[in-house]
Amino acid sequence: MSEETSIDIDYVATLARIELTDEEREQFSSQLEDILDYFERIKAVDVAGIEPTAHAFPIYNVWEEDVPEPGLSPDEALLNAPEQRGNQIVVPKVVEDA
């Protein structure tokens, strides 16, 4: 395993908001490092002057006019809500202050 392909699994899991068990953390670390090693081969390619492809067939100016269309009723919108109150989604209190 090369030095540069080490992965800070806790940092990335935090970014991705995924709780990992100790087992998963260990298993993923080694698997992901194998995968990153495998990725090393892309570094040998000369990509100077090559445009990145974001879309296989880019087209421009796909849009709609600013005209409202019917949407969901609150009941439909909250059909699958884990917890609701007065047509709003309930989440644990979001507190930001010290």
Binding site: A16, R17, I18, E19, L20, T21, L79, N80, A81, P82, E83, I89, V91, P92, K93, V94, V95
Partner: peptide, 22 residues
């Protein structure tokens, strides 16, 4: 938050993400 499985172990809104997704 809106429509998926929600963990019952969550202590706050940030924890809710980690545990529900975990």
């Amino acid at each position: 938050v809106r429509y998926t499985h929600r963990s019952e172990r969550a202590e706050d809104h940030v924890d809710l993400y980690f545990k529900s997704r975990g």
